[in-house]
């Protein structure tokens, strides 16, 4: 991370490579959505996957994560951040969705409630 140590990852090559890869990943995601050729779930997986790939590309090629010398506090801080935001985002989605069970939102149908409670008709 220091500007004064020799990091051979901080070069015109890394930035250009990162730029080109990112453009490709962005464009692919954009075109996939514009064409809308697959079902919704598949498309969501694709674009999320492409976003994750671009995240890694930018972390490596732009931010040079991993090039710093030990101790790698930056990596540890980032790891903890990912753990926290995963818990926060997915936890909240899980919790709030379950809350809808008792207070069904307008788009939740009776059919879903019956299925959840395995009510036999």
């Amino acid at each position: 991370m220091s500007t004064d140590t020799k990091t051979n990852t901080e070069s015109i090559w890394s930035y250009s490579m990162g730029f080109v890869l990112s453009i490709c990943l962005t464009s692919i995601a954009y075109l996939l959505i514009r064409q809308n050729g697959h079902n919704k779930t598949t498309l969501v997986w694709y674009i999320v996957g492409l976003a994750m790939a671009q995240l890694v590309v930018q972390l490596v090629f732009f931010i040079h994560l991993g090039a710093e010398s030990k101790p790698r506090w930056n990596k540890l801080a980032m790891l903890f951040m990912f753990v926290v935001i995963s818990i926060l985002v997915f936890g909240s989605m899980w919790i709030m969705n379950s809350l809808n069970y008792n207070h069904p939102a307008m788009n939740m149908t009776d059919g879903e409630v019956i299925k959840d409670e395995i009510i036999k008709r």
């Binding site: 962005t26 995601a29 809308n36 919704k40 498309l43 674009i47 976003a51 671009q54 930018q58 931010i63």
Partner: peptide, 21 residues
């Protein structure tokens, strides 16, 4: 600035791309 672009990747993907599905 790099960090802001990374955040934008996710806004672009989750808000806009997914939002148009």
């Amino acid at each position: 600035w790099h960090f802001l672009d990374i955040i934008w990747i996710f806004i672009f993907t989750i808000v806009y791309l997914r939002g148009t599905l």
